[in-house]
Amino acid sequence: MLKSLLAAALLMLGGHACAASTDVAPLSVTLHGQHFSVELATNEAAREHGLMMRTSLAADHGMLFVFPDTAPRGFWMKNTLIPLDILYFDAERKLVSTQLDVPPCKADPCPVYPSAGPARYVLELSAGTATRIGVRDGDTLAIDGRLGTVD
C-alpha cells in the first residue's frame, strides 16, 4: 500500500513518460555538444501524454518536459513502446539525475523512475543516447527557442 501511495505521489509531482501531444512548436536543445530537435510538453495534458504510443524516436529527436516549479519528479513508461533515457535538470538547466535505458512498461502497475534531486526540466531521448554522447551530472542543457507558457 505504501509503495502504491509513493508511486502516486511521485506521479502527481512529476508527470510521466508517455506520448505525442505538445502545446508549442518544436524547438532544439543542445546537450554535451549534441543538438536535438524536441517537442515540448509545457502543460499538464502534454506532460501526461509524453511519448505514449510512439513506435520509434529518431536519434536526434526527443521530448522536453517543462514544469512551472522545481520539485522531485517521477516518470513512468505506461503505454510507452520504446526504451528511453530520462534526464532531469534543475532550474538552472544543470543535469541532476538520469534514468538510463528505461524499458517500456509491461507490468501493471508500471514502475516509477524518480529523479535523484529536484528538477524543473526533463528531457527524454532514445535509450542509449546519454551514454553515447557522454552525458555527465552537471552538464548544462541549452534551449534554443521559446518555451512559451508553462502551466
Results as ranks from 00 to 15, higher is better:
49 H>N: 10
71 A>M: 08
101 D>C: 00
34 Q>E: 13
103 P>G: 03
22 T>Y: 11
71 A>K: 15
23 D>F: 14
42 T>I: 04
26 P>I: 04
69 D>H: 11
42 T>P: 05
55 T>F: 12
57 L>N: 04
42 T>H: 02
78 K>H: 11
32 H>D: 09
101 D>A: 08
98 T>K: 00
45 A>G: 05
43 N>S: 00
82 I>F: 05
79 N>K: 07
21 S>L: 15
24 V>C: 15
69 D>L: 13
56 S>P: 07
86 I>R: 00
22 T>I: 04
71 A>R: 13
32 H>C: 14
19 A>W: 14
27 L>D: 12
35 H>C: 10
58 A>N: 02
78 K>C: 09
85 D>T: 08
89 F>S: 02
25 A>T: 03
45 A>L: 07
18 C>D: 10
41 A>G: 09
83 P>Y: 10
90 D>P: 01
37 S>G: 04
83 P>I: 02
65 F>H: 02
79 N>L: 05
24 V>M: 14
81 L>Q: 06
29 V>C: 01
43 N>W: 05
94 K>T: 04
57 L>K: 00
97 S>W: 01
87 L>W: 04
70 T>G: 02
25 A>F: 02
55 T>M: 14
20 A>H: 07
46 A>W: 10
89 F>N: 03
77 M>D: 06
63 M>P: 00
26 P>D: 04
89 F>D: 01
104 P>H: 01
50 G>N: 03
93 R>T: 01
81 L>M: 04
73 R>K: 15
93 R>W: 00
54 R>F: 09
63 M>G: 03
24 V>W: 13
43 N>L: 09
38 V>P: 01
30 T>Y: 05
82 I>H: 01
33 G>W: 05
21 S>N: 14
